[in-house]
């Protein structure tokens, strides 16, 4: 096994995932460059989380290949696991354990030594050290989530809708932390429903719908693409927002949950 130290950190090639007769992911290909923040956008049911979970080794692909940090997610799943940090969509911690206990548990699972208080301090959770995960506010939970994701200093972290359900202040606070993580050289792959969030954080985006990638590029490229079709906002203060790109690409109809 030779590792490629340069070039894209994630390569997704012709990835397919089928559940029974439902095609969740329909032959998608993209790359994530080392050190960038890459956003996957799309309506519910578009296949974002499935794609993410295949990259996280939590699901097996039905077809195609995915390599993360030079390792195949199927053949070298355990190596991949030790190089990535994973934040799931909702609470994924024992509610009856304190933050310090949870960090110690995860440290043991990654076989590393950590100082829980130093980590909590960095995420403004120091005074919550002895608090149960259950008793945290939404923003605190997501900060703790991020902290646990970074515990073993992974090369890549995956964030599934990190700011869903947060109030604007908590959201801006989390954006700051994600930018900080990126500035330290960690590659960030995230999904989101918020176009503003994608505009604020992501270097590049992929928009998914019905299991396929229907657009990729930097936020600016996507905006320019839309504007090139002659699109103009009725009341012009800003030529277009990313939200317009999103709706242009995916349509206006309401989706089921």
């Amino acid at each position: 096994m030779t590792r490629v130290a340069t070039g894209p950190i994630i390569r997704v090639d012709g990835l397919r995932k089928v559940f029974g007769s439902v095609i969740a992911v329909d032959g998608i290909s993209f790359v994530v460059e080392r050190g960038e923040t890459f956003g996957i956008l799309g309506p519910n049911g578009a296949g974002k989380t499935t794609t993410l979970e295949i990259m996280e080794t939590l699901q097996k692909p039905s077809g195609g290949s995915v390599s993360v940090d030079g390792f195949d997610v199927v053949a070298d799943a355990w190596t991949v696991k030790s190089r990535i940090g994973v934040q799931l969509q909702s609470a994924a911690f024992y509610p009856e354990l304190t933050l310090v206990q949870l960090l110690k548990m995860f440290a043991a699972l990654y076989d590393i030594r950590v100082d829980p208080l130093t980590i909590l301090r960095r995420f403004q959770l120091e005074e919550k050290a002895k608090t149960f995960y259950d008793k945290l506010s939404g923003g605190q939970k997501q900060r703790f989530n991020l902290a646990s994701t970074l515990l073993h200093r992974p090369s890549i972290i995956f964030l599934d809708e990190p700011t869903t359900g947060l109030d604007p202040q908590a959201r801006i606070n989390l954006w700051e932390l994600i930018r900080e993580v990126r500035s330290e050289g960690v590659t960030v792959v995230m999904t989101t429903h918020y176009m503003e969030e994608a505009e604020q954080l992501c270097d590049r985006l992929a928009i998914m719908d019905h299991g396929q990638i229907i657009a990729t590029g930097t936020p600016q490229v996507l905006l320019d693409e839309l504007l090139a079709t002659g699109f103009r906002k009725p009341v012009i203060r800003q030529d277009a927002t990313l939200e317009d790109v999103f709706l242009w690409k995916t349509g206006h109809s309401l989706r089921d949950e």
């Binding site: 190089r83 110690k104 548990m105 699972l109 950590v114 100082d115 970074l150 200093r153 330290e184």
Partner: peptide
């Protein structure tokens, strides 16, 4: 240790995690 300010070094040598320690924690 565990200062996150230190940029991640992707070439860092990693041991295979100790499964006994993991079992004890689990």
């Amino acid at each position: 240790m565990s200062e996150f300010a230190i940029a991640h070094n992707s070439g860092m040598r990693r041991r295979s995690p100790s499964q006994l320690r993991a079992l004890a924690a689990l």
